[in-house]
Design a protein around this nucleic acid. Structure first.
Length: 1150
RNA sequence: AGAUCCGUAGCUCAGCCUGGUUAGAGCACUACACUGAUAAUGUAGGGGUCAGCAGUUCAAAUCUGCUCGGGUCUACCA
């Protein structure tokens, strides 16, 4: 966050330890709360109630009043559908970042919002009413229809509010922005007016997907409904366009011996051929003129096509074949290349129209586009040599590329097909025939075949075949769509493409590749934004036009509209309703359509009927969520939005799914760039999809959707959130598996819970409330210093990861600490410290250390799992009162203390862990249980430093693995045998190709060579008669196995274990075993931890000595006041100690 | 078709940026152990041609290219 070089508000530093004068907050309690079991969902309910009571969310914002804002924008969901699990992941991300930044001292306001316009809502209403688009305004009035839509948009708002609450998403839903509100729409109008004034809003014909069967244009959204693209077989045709001779084409005719020359062009839609007006070639593509025969008419022909595609039409064997002997029966077509040239060489040359009729004559073209210059060869960059012939048949009306290149080259436009999908009159035998079977006519004859046959007969087809490709179909009628020219309003985004690209480079994308790749490429290839939608429920385009289309007005606010209406009333003698809002009307259809304005010269103006793309709604939320400020507007403020806007723009952070890359991320970026030349957001996290556990997309159809309510009710929001965050990076697709949540619940929350329970249990016994002075870390035992060092390393790393928007890494660091370090090492090793001995220095150290770990972990994990962390924090703080704030979410994020981090200590503890694990594995191999003490282990000490390090943790290891002593093997005592291995990283860089020889040489070192190297620090060798000075750092030295010992090793650490059990050791083992049995009896009898007992044991020869010798030890362990051996014990419990049967009798001391 | 992400143990993922010689965790499975955190824990074991092919290199899970498979977005373009 380079932009935040400020001082965060410090409001929640721990209080100075114990002062009697301190006033205790009302949440204080005597004892740490203990639980009977871990029930996350129930616990969350409880915390939710607390949050609710104390307005915890509101407080988390108000407590940071005056701090630097961290600006977050909520992408508005549509409450028209049920929330799904994929919403939970992006909202977890959003919530986590906002909570984290709050804990970091920023003030993070989160205004919620609802997306309320658009096709999905309309389609839902249509379905509900059982009508289609055509019925609107006929069977139901537009007014009633829109009323229905308005009711439908917030249909599932309750469900959304519910999931928001239950998942712990803190967002302000009391005052959300709603896109259908007048003030919201008004702001959009103002923005559109800005664009209009800049000349960036224009009307034009565009080629759009159109469904003749349904008689309507289709939005890209509709085109992306599942199943719209189908593989179909269409008749494709390579047509022959006859070249006309001119100065520029003379070389072709010369090469062809003045015979006819044809340009070959391929199409999968022969019905577009009558609308052909040009042929597009690639300027730098190589073309050839080939002499051959027409395979249908067998007439000799000369054809032009891309050189790269010759092989597609001609067999290599036929090159320079037998022209003279060619007949209709000849299978192999002879051919030869006459000449070769570039596409640009024939730019602008004319050809003969392929299928001339009355309706598509040149005169007809000139009537539509008076100065058009059709039937010529033009160049275009989009031409490839992957399909077809490298020459593109260009019918501007039926393809977006065609339209663009056609317009640029002024070849006119012909639309020989009407909106029902049939040929217009004046098309000879094809007039009024449907270009595809739109009417389910069983007698339908494919007009594409007829056109192809006609071309074949006329020597104008070179190849006709079925071609399989995927083609879009209307999702409603299942009929193929066609691309058709329709009027539409556009935003000229292409005018500021460079700026948008440059601004994008300043945005921090997570992951980076989405910003550079998917989004970056999209910007590079951007086309103008088609705003028009011919629907009913949406933001109306605020443009009024005179009947003749000469004068236009773009309205930018409600006051402006009232003013213009008043003018019109005066000029035209109307009585329009001026104040909509007072009369309960709104800025939707049909009301806005009824408004008449007036031009300067007194002509009536009506609104153009278009609505705008809903994506404009959401992209404009940075401005429209606040609405227009009329005072600022009057004063001509370039940013006339209500107050919080100034400190809330642009956003520091937004997050949504990758599917929004070309959606919300784009429209936010486009509008900010267009209107203010600014970014709308500084950091954007695009999370991946949530798939089912098999990697399939979740869909209602497949029935594999995960119900977020059920998930949270069953496993808890925290476990779900933790799983979502730590399982995979947010931008990777997530294979959602409930088993994964269970694992998180057990492994992470279960472990943390156990650790807390352990702490609470003993603290409550000892009355630890952190009232003692904070013991300086340096004065605590090694293991305490170690766990605090590790904790601070974790704080450091977790914070860095969070700052870098890498929550997965942060979560894993925390998880690993809780499980591996805190629970399975610190607590395990320190258990005795909590229940043995008096309440003095060492015990207080242990309590303070464990307390600090728990409290810190709670704060570290709070952004990810807000409930459990708050529960732990509150329970700890209730007794200690270290924080004045009541919730973890009002506390500060932990800050690491580098003075506590001791890397040497962490390293040697790692060594202790490894050594213990090795010894335990050795014990396992020879089947000697840990309770049986063993005499010693041997550690080969490779050098003095290692010995010093190990010595400091020797006691820990001894206790952990139950051995009496550790002995080091050094060169001095002659036991150690070392082995040597080259350090490939260091040596490889220096030696390169000689590495292999060096490895062989080093491998051949004997003990003397190794000790010489160690003693002198380097030795000189010779490789390929070149000298090499081998440094000690160029090799890795470890110890070899020790003959006659049980040995295990890991990396450079080797451990040997003395497995002889002497009689003394065996007795001690027996004593320990007895302790274990009696402890079990204590527990079975249900004694309290602190109960004292009396023990009698039946006389057993085998154990007598052991009991005698270790009597004091045993009594201390089992809290017994006496341990007696008696000869008769009729009521005793029968037990076995290492296969020795005996009876014991345990009673509680009164 | 283009862009992009992904492919490592039965499953979920590290490691890849910055190449280095036994490829790691966790879950699951099996066996054993531990036992005043106990519906917890430890140890061990099996299980991998690191999707495939080719290249660069002394050395490739790691870098490059291609192929295959999966996801998403964009497009459907003759």
């Amino acid at each position: 966050m380079p932009n935040h070089t400020h001082k965060p508000a410090q409001i929640s530093v721990p209080l100075p330890p114990s002062k009697n004068s301190r006033k205790e907050p009302n949440f204080m309690s005597e004892k740490y709360r203990e639980f009977s079991q871990l029930n996350l969902p129930a616990m969350e309910q409880e915390i939710l109630a607390k949050w609710n009571e104390s307005q915890a969310f509101e407080k988390s914002v108000s407590l940071r009043e005056g701090a630097t804002p961290f600006v977050f924008y909520e992408g508005p969901p549509s409450a028209n559908g049920m929330p799904g699990i994929h919403h939970v992941i992006s909202r977890t991300l959003k919530d986590m970042v906002c909570r984290y930044k709050t804990m970091k001292g920023f003030q993070v306001k989160r205004k919620g919002g609802w997306d309320t316009h658009g096709l999905p809502i309309e389609l839902g209403v249509e379905k509900e009413l059982g009508i289609t688009k055509e019925d609107i305004g006929v069977k139901i009035s537009v007014e009633d229809y829109n009323k229905k839509c308005r009711e439908a948009v917030l249909r599932y708002k309750d469900k959304w509010d519910d999931i928001t609450k239950k998942m712990g998403y803190w967002v302000d839903l009391n005052d959300p922005y709603i896109t259908f509100q007048n003030s919201y729409i008004e702001t959009l109008w103002w923005l559109l007016q800005q664009l209009y004034k800049k000349g960036l809003l224009y009307e034009s014909v565009s080629i759009q997907p159109y469904s003749p069967a349904a008689g309507t244009g289709l939005s890209s959204h509709e085109l992306n409904q599942p199943g719209t693209y189908k593989d179909v077989k269409d008749t494709s045709c390579v047509a022959m366009f006859k070249a006309l001779k001119s100065d520029k084409t003379k070389f072709l005719f010369d090469a062809a011996g003045n015979d006819e020359v044809y340009y070959l062009a391929w199409t999968t839609t022969p019905w577009t051929l009558p609308s052909n007006l040009g042929l597009t070639v690639g300027p730098n593509i190589d073309y050839v003129l080939v002499s051959t025969f027409n395979p249908y008419t067998h007439l000799p022909v000369n054809v032009v096509l891309a050189k790269a595609l010759v092989g597609k039409y001609f067999k290599a064997d036929g090159e320079n074949g037998d022209f003279a002997g060619y007949s209709a029966e000849t299978k192999l077509l002879p051919w030869k290349v006459l000449t070769e040239f570039k596409g640009k060489d024939i730019e602008g040359v004319y050809y003969e129209q392929l299928l001339p009729y009355e309706a598509n004559s040149k005169e007809a073209v000139l009537t539509i586009t008076p100065d058009a210059d059709p039937f010529k060869v033009i160049v275009g960059d989009f031409v490839t040599t992957e399909d077809g012939t490298g020459i593109v048949h260009t019918a501007p009306a039926f393809g977006a590329d065609d339209y663009r290149v056609g317009k640029k080259n002024n070849i006119g436009i012909l639309t020989m097909v009407d909106r029902e999908g049939k040929f217009v009159d004046g098309m000879g035998e094809f007039s009024r025939r449907f270009v595809k079977n739109y009417k389910d006519d069983p007698a339908y004859v494919d007009v594409n075949i007829d056109i192809s046959v006609k071309l074949k007969k006329e020597n104008r087809a070179f190849k006709v075949e079925k071609y399989e490709h995927s083609y879009p179909h209307c999702w409603r009628t299942d009929k193929p769509i066609l691309y058709y020219p329709l009027d539409a309003w556009f935003i000229k985004t292409t005018a500021i493409r460079d700026q948008m690209v440059a601004l994008n480079k300043t945005i921090n994308w997570k992951p980076k590749s989405t910003g550079e790749g998917r989004f970056g490429n999209w910007l590079e290839n951007m086309v103008d934004w088609n705003l028009s939608r011919s629907r009913f429920w949406g933001t109306a385009l605020p443009i009024w036009k005179t009947e003749d289309g000469e004068v236009l007005k773009c309205i930018g606010s409600m006051p402006e509209l009232w003013e213009e209406m008043a003018k019109a009333d005066a000029a035209l003698g109307l009585t329009q309703v001026l104040d909509f809002t007072a009369k309960g009307l709104d800025l939707h259809k049909p009301y806005v359509d009824a408004i008449v304005l007036v031009s300067e010269d007194g002509k009536a103006m009506k609104r153009v009927p278009d609505l705008i793309d809903v994506w404009f709604d959401s992209g404009a939320m940075p401005y429209a969520q606040w609405g227009l400020d009329y005072d600022k507007l009057k004063a001509g403020d370039p940013r006339p939005f209500k107050a919080p806007f100034d400190t809330n723009y642009p956003a520091d952070f937004i997050a949504e799914g990758v599917d929004q890359t070309r959606g919300w991320f784009y429209t936010l970026h486009a509008i900010a760039s267009l209107v203010y030349g600014s970014v709308a957001y500084k950091t954007v996290v695009s999370n991946g999809l949530v798939l089912d556990k098999n990697g399939n997309k979740m869909s209602k159809r497949l029935g594999n959707v995960v119900d977020p309510f059920k998930t949270i009710e069953t496993f808890g929001a925290d476990a779900t959130r933790w799983y979502l965050i730590t399982n995979a990076s947010p931008w990777d697709n997530l294979k959602f598996d409930l088993e994964g949540i269970k694992e998180v619940q057990r492994k992470f929350f279960g472990t943390f819970y156990n650790t807390y329970q352990f702490f609470a249990l003993y603290s409550n016994v000892d009355g630890f409330a952190f009232k003692e002075k904070y013991i300086p870390v340096a004065e605590r035992p090694e293991i305490d210093r170690w766990v605090l060092s590790t904790l601070n390393t974790v704080i450091k790393r977790a914070g860095e990861y969070m700052d870098d928007y890498e929550p997965t890494q942060a979560g894993r660091v925390i998880e690993d600490f809780v499980d591996e370090q805190l629970s399975n090492w610190y607590v395990r090793l320190c258990r005795r410290r909590f229940w043995k001995g008096e309440y003095e220095h060492d015990k207080v150290c242990a309590y303070q250390t464990l307390y600090e770990c728990l409290e810190t972990i709670a704060r570290l994990m709070a952004p990810i799992s807000p409930f459990f962390s708050d529960m732990v924090f509150r329970n700890l703080n209730a007794v200690s009162g270290r924080f004045t704030v009541e919730s973890v979410h009002h506390a500060d994020y932990p800050v690491f203390d580098s003075s506590v981090i001791d890397t040497d200590l962490e390293e040697r503890m790692k060594m202790a862990q490894d050594a213990s694990s090795l010894v335990l594995s050795l014990r396992k191999k020879v089947n000697i249980k840990v309770r049986q003490p063993l005499q010693k282990i041997l550690i080969p000490a490779l050098n003095q430093a290692m010995m010093v390090q190990f010595d400091k943790i020797a006691d820990l290891v001894k206790a952990e693995v139950n051995v009496k002593e550790i002995q080091y093997l050094t060169e001095d005592n002659g036991f150690i045998r070392k082995k040597i291995k080259p350090n490939f990283v260091a040596l490889g860089k220096r030696l390169g190709p000689k590495m292999k020889a060096a490895a062989a040489l080093i491998g051949a070192f004997n003990q003397d060579d190794i000790s010489k190297l160690e003693k002198e620090g380097s030795v000189s060798l010779e490789i390929d008669s070149e000298p090499l000075i081998l440094q000690i750092s160029d090799v890795e030295i470890s110890s070899e196995d020790i003959p006659g010992w049980m040995v295990a090793n890991k990396d450079s650490l080797t451990v040997a274990l003395d497995v002889t059990v002497s009689p003394e050791l065996e007795q001690e083992g027996n004593a320990r075993e007895l302790v274990n049995r009696i402890q079990k009896i204590r527990k079975d009898n249900g004694y309290e931890l602190t109960d004292r007992i009396l023990v009698k044991v039946s006389d057993s020869g085998a154990l007598k000595e052991s009991i005698g010798q270790f009597n004091a030890y045993i009594c201390a362990e089992i809290l017994a006041d006496s341990l007696e051996i008696v000869s008769e014990l009729p009521n005793g419990t029968e037990i076995e100690v290492n296969d020795i049967p005996l009876k014991v009798f345990v009673t509680k001391k009164a």
